[in-house]
Design a protein around this nucleic acid. Structure first.
Ligand code: MN
Ligand code: MN
Ligand code: ZN
Ligand code: ZN
Lengths: 162, 162
DNA sequence: CTTGATAATGACAACCATTATCATTAACCC
DNA sequence: GGGTTAATGATAATGGTTGTCATTATCAAG
C-alpha cells in the first residue's frame, strides 16, 4: 500500500504534520485545486474555484494556506507583473520541477519551459559560482523570465504595433 | 558645444519634446534625483529626496513622471519583491546599460552586475532563439535575478539561520 | 513679451491586493 | 468524547498605486 493518509494525495497530511501544521478541509481543497490545474492561479482564482465546492471557505484562508505552502516549499509564488501573486504547485521530488517562464505582455499568458538547452544549466551554475565569489554573495535561488508576445498576440498586434 | 537645452543634462528637454511631452520643474527635479544616485529608489524614496528642494512637488507627480519616463524607455522599473516598484535611470545609449541583479533576501540590498561571463550573452541569445522557435513566441526582453544573502547578512545569519 | 490652448500638477479620494484582528470552530493527541 | 490550541472566517485595516478635477504653468504662436 503506497503511503497515503486518509485521502487522495500522497502524503499531504504527513507533510503538514511533519511541519507542525494541521491538515484541514480548506487546505485539502486548496491543494486539490492546485493539483487539478496547469495554470498559474492567483489567490482569488483559487478562492473562486474552491468556493464552488466549499462556499464557506474564505479568501483570507486561501492566502494563509498559500503562505504556509510556500514556506513549506510545496508551492512556488511568482510575480508576472500583473499586480497579483500567482501560485504553482511544486511537482514534488522530481528534479524536473524547476522551470522558467515566458510571459506574454499582451494577454498575460504564461508558458512554462523546462527543456533547457544543456548549456543553460551548466552556465547558470558557472555564473552563480562566479557571482558568489566576486560579490561574496550566497546565491540560493534565481528567477528567469522572458517577456514578449505569444503566438496568438503576435498575429493580432502585427509588426506595426497597432 | 555639446547639445544641451537650457539646463544641465544632455538633451532631456529635447527628448521630452520629441515625445510630445513638456519639460517641467518636477520632471527635471525627479531626473536629477535619479542621476545623483546609484541606488534603486522607490517612488516614495524619490518623493522624499525631491521634497527637500521642492517641498510642493507631490507624490502623484512622481508616479506619473516615472510612468512617462518608463514608457520613454529612459528608466527601468523593477520589482525586487519588497512590495514596491523600484526605478533606475537608463544610462543612455551605452550598450553596457543592460544589467542584472543580485537581491539580498535579508536586507534587500541590490547589487548590479554587468560583467557577464562571456558565454552568458551568447547563451541568452541562443536560448531566446530556441524558445522563440519552439513556442512561436516573440521575445523582446528578459529578467534575470539571483536571490540570496549579501556579504553582510551572510555573516549575521550564519549557517544555522539564527 | 504677451497670450492662449492645453498638458501637467497637486490635494484628495478611490482602488485593490494583501494582512491584521479577534471571536468562533475544528484537528488531533489523549 | 474532551480539552487544547491551531486554524478559520467575517471584517476592518494597511499601503502602494491610480483616478478625479480644479488650478497652474509650459511653450508655440503672434
Ligand atoms: Mn510555471
Ligand atoms: Mn540596477
Ligand atoms: Zn499573448
Ligand atoms: Zn543583505
Amino acid at each position: 500500500m503506497p503511503r497515503g493518509d486518509g485521502k487522495g494525495p500522497p502524503g499531504w497530511k504527513g507533510r503538514f504534520r511533519g511541519c507542525g501544521h494541521r491538515f484541514t478541509i480548506p487546505r485539502q481543497a486548496i491543494i486539490e485545486t492546485l493539483e487539478k490545474t496547469s495554470e498559474h492561479l492567483s489567490a482569488e482564482d483559487i478562492y473562486l474555484k474552491v468556493h464552488k465546492q466549499y462556499p464557506n471557505i474564505g479568501l483570507t484562508t486561501v492566502y494563509r494556506t498559500l503562505e504556509v505552502l510556500a514556506q513549506m516549499r510545496l508551492v512556488f509564488k511568482f510575480d508576472f507583473g500583473d499586480g497579483r501573486a500567482r501560485y504553482e504547485l511544486s511537482h514534488s521530488d522530481s528534479k524536473k520541477d524547476h522551470h522558467h517562464h515566458l510571459v506574454c505582455t499582451s494577454c498575460n499568458r504564461i508558458i512554462d519551459y523546462t527543456d533547457f538547452i544543456d548549456e543553460e544549466v551548466e552556465l547558470l551554475n558557472k555564473t552563480e559560482k562566479a557571482l558568489s565569489k566576486k560579490f561574496n554573495f550566497k546565491i540560493s535561488n534565481h528567477l528567469i523570465q522572458f517577456y514578449g508576445l505569444c503566438e496568438k498576440c503576435k498575429k493580432t498586434a502585427g509588426p506595426l504595433g497597432g
